[in-house]
Every structure is written in C-alpha cells, then in structure tokens.
Design a protein around this nucleic acid. Sequence first.
DNA 1: ACAGTAGATTGAAGAAAATTAATTTATGGG
DNA 2: CCCATAAATTAATTTTCTTCAATCTACTGT
Lengths: 205, 205
Amino acid sequence: MTIDAEIEPKPAKTAKRDTDLIVGERIRHLRLARGQSIKNLASGAGLSTALISQIERGISSASVRVLAKLADGLDIAISDLFEPALEDGDGDRIVARVRDRRRINLDATGVTKELLTPFSREPRLDIYMMTIEPDGSSGQDPYVHQGEEAGVVLEGGIELYVDNRQYILGEGDSFRFASNRPHRYLNAGRKTARVIWTLYREATE
Amino acid sequence: MTIDAEIEPKPAKTAKRDTDLIVGERIRHLRLARGQSIKNLASGAGLSTALISQIERGISSASVRVLAKLADGLDIAISDLFEPALEDGDGDRIVARVRDRRRINLDATGVTKELLTPFSREPRLDIYMMTIEPDGSSGQDPYVHQGEEAGVVLEGGIELYVDNRQYILGEGDSFRFASNRPHRYLNAGRKTARVIWTLYREATE
DNA sequence: ACAGTAGATTGAAGAAAATTAATTTATGGG
DNA sequence: CCCATAAATTAATTTTCTTCAATCTACTGT
C-alpha cells in the first residue's frame, strides 16, 4: 500500500499568483505614460527605487501602505490599480467615424436615432443623436429601464415627461434622470428637434 | 447668489496614514455582513487568523498577494476594498437651463469647459461642452481617473491620445474609453473645436 | 451564581518577505 | 571616451506573516 501523504486540499489559486505582476505592469504603464522615471516616482511617493523596480516586475507584493503612496505619486486612486484591465485585448474601439454611424430603428414615430459612440457588445456609456420631427414622440407608453441618462437639446425643443411631470426644454437646455423613472418625450413644436442623448448602463454580469 | 470665496488650499495627504485602517474596517464589515468568523475567512482565503485580525485592526498593512486571497475569500473584487461605498441620495434636479450653465476652470490652456447637465453633489453622468481654441490642449500630463468617458466632435477637430496612441477626430467623429487609461487631447487645427464630452463616474463617498 | 466548555479573537516569537541604501550594469548623447 | 540618466542587483534592515499559546465572550447545565 502506497501512502500518499501529500494532500491537495486547495482548489487551485486561480490566476491569483499573477496579481502582483498585473498590478506591477499597470504601475509601470502609468508611470511611463507620464514620462516619469523610477527615481522620479520614488521621490514623489516617498519610496525607494529598488522597491518600485521590484513591484513593477512582480517580484515584490506591495502592501496597502505602499500602494497608497504609489497612488499618491501617480495621482490616481488605489482602486484604479485593480480595475479590470482594458489595455489592448478588448475588441471595443475607441473612435467611431461619422460615416460609420449606426441608425437605430424605433417604433416611435417621427424619430431618428443614431448611435454616435463606437459600437460595443456590452452597453456602457453611449451617445445618441436623436432627431425628432414635429409631432414625433417616443410613443404612448413611458420607458422604464436600468441605468442613467442625460442629454442636451441642440436645436428646437421637446417636452420631456419624467414621473408624469412635464419639463419643457428649449435650445441648450439639458436633463438627467435615473432611467428607472418612467419617462417619455414629445416634440410639440413646429421645428425639427435635435437632441444629444446619452445613456449609461452597467455591464450585465 | 453669493459667490463662495472659500478656498481649498490642498487636498492634503488624504488619509494616507489611515488607509490600512480603512481597508481593515471594510474587510471586517464585509466579513461580519456575511456572518463569517476570522477563522472561517482564514481557511477560505488560505491565511492565518492572526494576520486577518491584525489587518482588520489596521496594525498590519496587507500586501497585494494577501489582498488577492482576501478578495477571493470574501468573493469580491480587490477594487471593492478601495471603492467608497455608494449610496443613493437623490435630491438632484432633472433639468438645467442654458442660462444657468456652470463654467469650469481648468489649468489647461485655450480650453473652456461648461457643465451642461444639472449640477449634483455626486458626480454621475455628466455632459460638458468643451470649446478648444487652436493650440489649446488638456495640458502636458495625461489624465488618469475613474469612470468612463465618451464624446462627439461638433465642430473643428482634435487629436485625442489614449494609451499613447493618437486618434485624429474630425466633425461628427466620436470616441469612448475607460478613464483609467492615460488620455489627453489637443487642437492642432486652425479652427476652434467644440466637443460634447460626457463622463460617467461612480458616486464617491 | 458558578463552573465548564466551545468558539472567536488577540498576543508573542520565530520564519519569511518586503523595503531600504548602496552598488553595479546598461543606455545614450557630446 | 566620459558624463549623465535609468534600471537592476546585492546586502542589511524592517515589516509582514505564521504558528501556537493566551485571553475573551457567550452559552450550558446544575
């Protein structure tokens, strides 16, 4: 009988070993992005150059105290060092060209909706250009959904209803509200209205 | 309206000495919120009970490696330990009038920034109108902060730099990126540029 | 009330690591 | 080459981290 004294109780530390390296690379990236040398950052943060060198290479695991000093020296929040990396792997583009704009179909009448921001699979912060003809509206039933929205009237005017309250907006006026409050809009004027409309929605997990 | 002449001299060394304690209290709070004992968390995270006790009391400054294990044991992201708790206080207005727009002062040269959306104490989804004169720019050092931003060029053109990559934007072009990627902008053209700039930031405590 | 007991937390000393200061290697102009 | 700047290495010190013992708290039964 073979006695296997080695027991493997731990369920594999998933990618946790790499956290130091990920954080280190993030720090190095941020430092280089603003043209700082290790020595420069070290004096700004009150740390030694050797430590920063090791942290950036993933050899050393920085403590909260050190992270706080580094964040101060880099003028960022500590949490920025741990936010999911969006470095290069994401397929989301940064720029969208005017000729590539997507037109969104709506059941609303007399309304054209164009997505201005680069297309992404996950809805996040998006900007739309809404063109609302006279008598055009979002439809009979108010919208209720997640997220937050805001906008600016560029031309013309609209009537915005939020929680059954009416707001009359002219050129240059703006609005913002949580999207879970019932809302709808209407162009009661004689001129075509153009509105910059922005939406923010959390990524669905 | 009275002009508030109070000056904030310096954000000072914002609570850097207390970061360990703040993080510790956050961990303790999270642990107790799910009815875990130190021992329980220790075995789940693969750490000693004494260490967790010291971290929670602010006596010890946890390293990134330890933070990763704790976050795993608490089933949260590391950044959650540094993000301020968000709350929903809503006394904010829905509409802002064009005549009430607030102008924001910048150290950037040749740039005017106007807040279009209704003012709120907590920054959330905000829309700005940026007017960038020829040769105007965001300044020498790139910005790095939390949140996400997007925008549309209404008139003129700008050069946008994200992660040291250059994007040249003309009228109607748009952009979107996570604000923790180093970014800056510049108007290299001869015409004044006007850009709708939107920002979304989680509520800060 | 009083032991007794079990679970939870804290304290102390040695092992392991992070951190500093000093040195060495590498890189790039005049 | 020589000087200046940046990054990596080495050795000494400080701090974190673990193991284990001690203290504390809450509850049980008599």
